[in-house]
Design a protein around this nucleic acid. Structure first.
Lengths: 303, 303
DNA sequence: CGTTCATTTCTGTCCTGGACAAAGTTGAAA
DNA sequence: TTTCAACTTTGTCCAGGACAGAAATGAACG
């Protein structure tokens, strides 16, 4: 309905919300309180954010996701922000995560990337491939992206190629359906599906009957699907960018809707390390823990 | 921050936006203008939408997607809406598009769906499968969705299963790179990727060097990618839900950004049948026409 | 009768500026 | 060290007004 893509490379508030993930209301209140962003106005008095400010907003977003407070970062200048990113990375990650495949995540090397991924899959097996290649590669890509070493298009390219390989591999397990029956999806404002595929790729070789709905299933439909489809477990994935608090709220809401006989498993970077207690929700720390959850479920079901 | 999980099954305005796809501002303005929805208020004066109203909003949304005007549907009662849905479907579709696979698009029949898809693929070959099975099935699903015969979750399920099969099949052509080099994606507000996969599945067997970036690539990044990656063609896909005019604007903008040596191909339901004059853009009517475009390009390149 | 163009109506998005509860932080008491 | 109360920060919501672009309508024309 909108999207006049703003000739000089400046974006409207809606486009900025889409590109940075910062809500329109929040953008306006930041401007009021911290003096940043300071968009221009078009002929109609509507905000127009220059590309540089959008870029800085992306930085700010990353820092907030790292746990910083807005008062410290919204308003600081770009130099300071970059310093903070390096600092935060050193403190948190500690591991630089070097990954040999990273060099192939380039538009003109897509064929090599695809080949290398397939080769790694054959070498490590599906579960090992996901845990030892894809997971670190994901993290490396995320960090490289934050450092501005990777283009948007290249990140898309990477996601596509990994999907191709994983989906083909998962397809090989089609039809081997043993309990539990697991329904996988994400909440409506989470678009990242790689996490779901990784879980599916981890569970499928164990003979679990996995079904992914992809991203963005409304909570109500999730309940309908879980109950109507006779599922034992509903699995949700949350990427690092997902607001932590929102995940908890959504999980509690879903928990209240589902019968107690259906388990909820939740995992992903947004939940990692947070030890919020979620009654009735199994928080999965990583892929290995996913397998643990599977064993727990089967042990409990055996009684 | 939000999401007090709405004890009586009523949702806050944010949750309703998520679940229905109607923006908060729009919900408020509908209330002001048409008297619907008419949410309750919580202790703090904030809107609380009862489940029934959310359900009705879903109906309204469907009718708007069908092309109805808000004045006619927001405000009508549920009976009328249901009547309109039946009527609209009779007038528009005309062809019931019976598709045998449609019966398997059920949560408890996902295994049968996957098996039937694979079987059809083997029987028809990749190109035939896409043209004669997936394309009609897509349309049938769309119509069934309009009629309310299909759940959100079931539509997601379908998309996932088709992706699994297509991506596995496309993977088999990896590495066979003959010109032209084709970059595929969608504009930032188009999330549907099935169209891209169908194009890729149609071109790959012809030996074309296809690379999909998935959905939602910003136009600027599309230019960077096309130029930097040495592509000959940029292909864009537009689902039926995409605003027609917006597609034209975006295509013209992209055309202006790209060097003349890079062709633009555009296709999808949003462009089908429209009388369009788009200088420098090859509008592709359907999958067969995609192959025609490929032949044209190769003929021109041979000079 | 079908097209093209101008005018009116409809509709979604944006605006300002105020309010408030939940989340986070601090510091004193146990 | 932990617990809890008081304080500060921060994102979301609200009202009600404005307006541009899309859709519908009507007029002029071939």
């Amino acid at each position: 309905m909108n999207e006049a893509p703003e000739l000089e490379g400046a974006l409207g508030i809606s486009a900025v919300e889409r590109d940075t993930g910062v809500a329109k209301d929040t953008l306006r209140v930041w401007e009021r309180r911290y003096g940043f962003p300071a968009p221009m106005r078009d002929a109609n008095g509507e905000r127009l954010y220059p590309a540089a400010q959008v870029e800085k907003l992306r930085l700010v977003r990353r820092l907030l996701d790292q746990g910083r407070r807005p008062a410290k970062v919204v308003g600081a200048d770009v130099e300071e922000l970059r310093a903070l990113i390096v600092e935060g990375e050193a403190g948190a990650g500690a591991t630089p995560v070097p990954c040999p495949l990273l060099q192939y995540v380039r538009l003109h090397r897509s064929a090599e990337l695809a080949a290398a991924l397939r080769q790694a899959l054959l070498r490590q097996g599906l579960q090992g491939f996901v845990a030892d290649t894809i997971a670190p590669l994901n993290q490396a890509i995320g960090e490289a992206w934050m450092r501005g070493e990777i283009e948007v298009a290249e990140e898309h390219l990477y996601t596509e190629q990994v999907q191709n390989v994983l989906r083909a591999a998962i397809g090989a397990y089609a039809g081997t359906g043993a309990p539990p029956r697991v329904l996988l999806s994400t909440f409506p404002d989470e678009v990242h599906t790689l996490g779901l595929l990784m879980v599916e790729a981890t569970l499928a070789p164990e003979g679990a009957d996995c079904l992914s709905l992809g991203a963005r299933t409304p909570i109500v439909d999730l309940r309908e699907a879980a109950v109507g489809g006779g599922f034992d477990v509903v699995g949700l994935s949350f990427s690092a960018a997902y607001p932590w608090r929102q995940a908890l709220d959504g999980l509690l809401e879903l928990r209240a809707m589902l019968p107690a006989s259906i388990a909820i498993w939740a995992g992903g970077a947004a939940l990692k390390g947070r030890q919020k207690r979620l009654p009735g929700v199994r928080v999965v720390e990583d892929l290995a823990d996913t397998l643990a959850a599977l064993r727990e479920w089967r042990a409990a079901a055996a009684d």
